[in-house]
Design a protein around this nucleic acid. Structure first.
Lengths: 230, 230
DNA sequence: GTCTATAACCCGATAGAC
DNA sequence: GTCTATCGGGTTATAGAC
């Protein structure tokens, strides 16, 4: 079916000579999309090569292997998110004493939704939700990477509700995180509500953040009440 | 749901000659494990063949294709879950008037956790969380299948809080569902709390169900309050 | 219905010219 | 650093004997 005659299609544009950084970025962008769309196993280096216009062997040259490329792509996403979250948490620590639950949650949630609303956002989000499901040999490393980056938030949560046992607070934390990777890009929601799961208008983005913050703040408070009652 | 064509109950004989239904079940069990472990693309029919002791070509004979086998395996899981949930909802409708939020949530959540706690449960849960991330050409069909099966719950939710706009109620519903596929089998939680994400002792299972019910009940009530305030 | 053998294809990785 | 061509091994799917 795909009999491609030996049509010599010389690349209309440049490609050749230097600019290593730019090539690496082009690879990473295409890789991100493909991994997000098809998962680790489903994505193919050949397709990434085609989409980025970078020859297959260059992928190996720059990132060594499929694992290496995946880790680079995912790591970049997490690094960006963690940076934005930490920035907000640090700002909070300077102005707020003590920390308020809603503001802590917003510091965590807002960067997720805002990043997701950027042009490349949907890819980011799908990739993120995939990572938790993929169990390539990489997933242990990724788990550690994510846990390290999010540690300050769990510590802050403990400050706010020290009376809630660790195991239970962690449950709440994971409920919240699951909802962040699941909710923003959600085909089921889109079909239900007949609108994009991830809003584009500034006003709707704020509304979604508010919704998530108040939902989870209420959830966490219910954990506090249970702890107090026992 | 059209799950079983003709069921032939032939006498007990070991591998070779007849017993179609049993062979199909063995295939399905192995397929479930492999798809859960490696995802759609990562799983291979050869490995499923080896694990089940059924020759590769028999997989195609019985299920036609990898897609067909995947759909059969996933469909079976969803059918089981939906059945258990609907049973509880129906029982609720007979005894409760009007429906209480906590009881509705429990009717939805309990079968998930109980199924997850069965021996094959972890496979089920991983498979479920994968399905939402996989976007094989199958995902549209699966989305429709799941939405149809869960419709009575969203309808009941609307009865309980008709004043909350659909789009917002759906957000809450998806937050809850995401937390169910993400939380039970959660390597991050296991690493954090240094204990299994999915408890095995009856008492701990009940505690997890209670936690999820009260967390999400509080979340939904916060949506009600926001709706009332505007 | 069961099973072996193999077709047809796609993958990740690499060699080597430029 | 860039690119072509190819290797070796994996995959799904099928043909055909029993």
């Amino acid at each position: 079916m795909k009999l491609e005659p030996p049509e010599k299609k010389r690349p209309p544009r440049r490609r050749s000579t230097a600019r290593t950084g730019e090539t690496r970025d082009e690879i990473l962008t295409a890789a991100l999309q493909q991994f997000a769309e098809y998962g680790f196993h489903g994505a193919s280096l050949r397709e990434i090569s085609k989409r980025s216009g970078v020859p297959l062997s260059a992928l190996h040259y720059h990132y060594g292997s499929k694992d290496g490329l995946f880790f680079a792509a995912v790591g970049q996403v997490f690094a960006r998110l963690s940076e934005a979250r930490l920035e907000r948490l640090t700002a909070l620590r300077r102005t707020e004493t003590p920390l308020a639950l809603e503001q802590l949650l917003e510091a965590f949630i807002r960067p997720t939704i805002e990043l997701a609303s950027a042009p490349e956002g949907p890819s980011f989000m799908r990739l993120q939700s995939r990572v938790y499901a993929e169990n390539a040999p990489l997933s242990d490393q990724l788990t550690k990477l994510v846990l390290d980056a999010t540690h300050p938030f769990r510590a802050a949560l403990e400050e706010i509700m020290p009376e809630v046992p660790d195991a239970i607070r962690y449950r709440g934390y994971r409920i919240m995180v699951s909802s962040l990777s699941g909710v923003p890009v959600d085909p089921m929601y889109e079909q239900l509500a007949k609108r994009a799961a991830l809003p584009r208008r500034k006003r709707d983005i704020e509304a979604l953040i508010d919704l998530l913050v108040s939902y989870h703040a209420a959830g966490f408070r219910s954990l506090q009440q249970s702890a107090a009652a026992s």
